[in-house]
């Protein structure tokens, strides 16, 4: 049964997961079909964003720059006591903040994508992968601008970089994959229940302090254990090490988390796809 001819669409109440092969084919097809649309939406968003503003892309670097400046000030005055870092502290903390924020943006990406496209989702049927791709494109765009700023900072502080910097995009992309995977897996709850998205704000704040963003991996055994349990740690630390020293301290956990993140991404995509019709029913 169910040989649906080409150009014919069939809507039934049955779960799509019962026919996984067809589902995967549809997923792949929609991903492919949404490339052009995603590109267009990305250009629309970026243009729309900067057409109203005089400072333009400066706004992309203000938040990490302020965080970095604050932390540097705290460290210099001795309020904060941070151990020895491989490179001058301002550059160190700036790089860490940029990487952390990229992860955070990726984590929030599905929720923001759905929220900003509400009217569209409620009225037009189109491949929903497009809005996620658009958001990811935006994250990459922001990352590139922020990295340009980091490079400028590195030049000012005369920080030497390792040749392994050319490998660092892999680690950064894995960081984005991890964030997106978690975000997609949480789509049903974050978009249906307001409490969860509120809770996420608190959780991510705590998460920030448990990630070696502003400090190197601590020596204190308990803290060290907690920080190492954090899946963001190996990805963020590795990305930083690839840029600065070139000596990797946690290659194994990096590989492990990367594979988990990739599996999570596929699972998250699946859940996103299956959940979308129910979300649309309720957000419109």
């Amino acid at each position: 049964m169910n040989k649906v001819p080409i150009g014919e669409t069939l809507y039934t109440p049955k779960s799509k997961i019962l026919r996984p092969l067809k589902l995967f084919r549809e997923m792949y097809g929609d991903l492919f079909a949404s490339r052009e649309l995603a590109w267009r939406l990305l250009i629309r968003n970026i243009r729309g964003q900067y057409r109203r503003s005089f400072l333009g892309i400066t706004w992309a670097i203000v938040p990490p720059a302020l965080t970095a400046a604050g932390l540097t000030f705290a460290n210099d005055t001795g309020v904060l006591n941070i151990g020895e870092t491989d490179i001058p502290y301002p550059a160190y903390v700036m790089l860490g903040t940029v990487l952390w924020q990229t992860f955070l943006e990726a984590l929030n990406c599905p929720q923001i994508a759905i929220n900003t496209s509400r009217p569209l989702l409620a009225q037009v049927k189109f491949p929903h992968e497009a809005i996620i791709l658009t958001q990811l494109g935006q994250i990459l765009f922001n990352l590139i601008i922020k990295l340009a700023f980091v490079i400028a900072l590195f030049i000012i502080f005369r920080v030497s970089v390792s040749w392994t910097i050319i490998l660092s995009p892999i680690a950064m992309i894995n960081l984005i994959i991890l964030g997106t995977a978690i975000g997609l897996l949480l789509v049903p709850v974050t978009n249906l229940i307001q409490d969860i998205s509120r809770a996420m704000e608190v959780i991510t704040l705590a998460w920030f302090f448990l990630t070696p963003v502003a400090y190197p991996t601590p020596d204190n055994p308990i803290l060290n254990f907690i920080v190492k349990l954090n899946p963001v740690t190996p990805l963020l630390v590795t990305a930083r090490e690839l840029i600065t020293t070139g000596v990797l301290s946690q290659p194994l956990s990096f590989a492990f988390v990367s594979i988990i993140a990739l599996i999570g991404l596929v699972l998250g995509w699946l859940i996103y796809r299956l959940a979308m019709p129910y979300l649309i029913e309720r957000i419109s």
Binding site: Y11, V124, E281
Partner: peptide, 26 residues
């Protein structure tokens, strides 16, 4: 238009659908 899933029964459609549910969505 396929925006929401039916709870029973089925809908079969041949061809490309355009929905004018709101003009200039997006």
């Amino acid at each position: 238009s396929g925006l929401i899933k039916p709870d029973t029964g089925s809908i079969r459609i041949r061809g490309r659908i355009a929905a004018l549910i709101a003009l200039g969505a997006g």
